[in-house]
Simulated assay, not measured.
Amino acid sequence: MSEQDNTQQPPEKKEKKSLSLNVVSNKEHKGFGAGTIDLSAVSCVMIDNGEAYIDVGAMHAKSKIERGIKFSANKEDVPNGRLCWIVWVAVDRTEEGASYAGATACPMLIDTEARRGWKILAQHVNNLDYAIKRRYVLDELGVEEKRALKNLLVSNNPEWWDRSPDKLKEALEV
């Protein structure tokens, strides 16, 4: 055996694979990460008592108002709950610049004192998906909530608001 054959090559470094949320689709899985979506372009807006604010914890059901709350799928379990909203907002970046490309709202009842809450998890997941797919589902919001959401989106980035589709602007008209 020659000296050259005896030398060891350093092992090849494997590329680190990132994990992300898998979405079920009708396409065949083609390996690690197939069918994943990028949630980095989605923000969570909470609307509570007429105030809208961004809360990144909502992506994992750990927003300020959700922490410490035991949730039920039965509204009757939260008779003294106040109506709060989570709004999934997707941002799209094009050559013209970024815009608010999708927005969907989901109701929740929160009774902070009793530490109980109501929400339909399936609706939250579906509406997150709809926002990512550039849809607007804001019909259930009341006048006060629409005004708060619009004010937050405009003040967060007026240029994004200006470039956003008319469909969003019409949905938030009060």
Rank of each mutant, 00 (worst) to 15 (best):
K16C: 13
D38Y: 06
S99H: 12
K119M: 08
L21C: 05
A73P: 09
I65R: 02
K70A: 09
G68C: 06
K133T: 10
I37T: 12
D77W: 02
L39F: 03
S155C: 14
K119Q: 04
D55I: 15
A90K: 10
W85M: 06
P11S: 09
G117P: 08
W118R: 00
D55R: 00
S40E: 13
A148D: 05
S25L: 08
L121Y: 00
K146C: 08
V42L: 15
P11D: 04
I54L: 13
K62W: 01
A105S: 03
L128G: 12
L19R: 01
W85V: 11
M46S: 08
W161K: 06
P107T: 14
L152P: 02
L153I: 10
L19P: 02
Q9G: 02
S43R: 08
K16L: 12
L128V: 14
P79K: 00
K150S: 10
S99P: 13
V91M: 07
E145P: 04
G102N: 12
A101D: 13
L153N: 00
E15N: 14
I86D: 00
S18W: 04
S18C: 12
S99F: 13
N26K: 10
N157A: 10
E140I: 07
E173H: 09
L39D: 02
E66T: 15
E3D: 10
G50V: 11
A171R: 10
G35C: 11
M46G: 09
E95W: 05
G68T: 09
N80H: 07
M1L: 11
W85E: 07
P107S: 13
I120M: 06
M59A: 07
A58V: 12
P10C: 13
M59K: 01
L121E: 01
A98C: 14
K146P: 04
A105F: 00
L121A: 01
A90Y: 06
A171S: 15
N74Q: 09
R93A: 04
M46H: 06
K150H: 03
A34C: 10
M108K: 09
I69E: 04
L153E: 03
K70E: 06
A103C: 11
S25T: 12
Y100N: 12
V91F: 03
N6V: 15
K75L: 15
G31M: 07
K13T: 11
S99L: 11
E51T: 15
I37A: 09
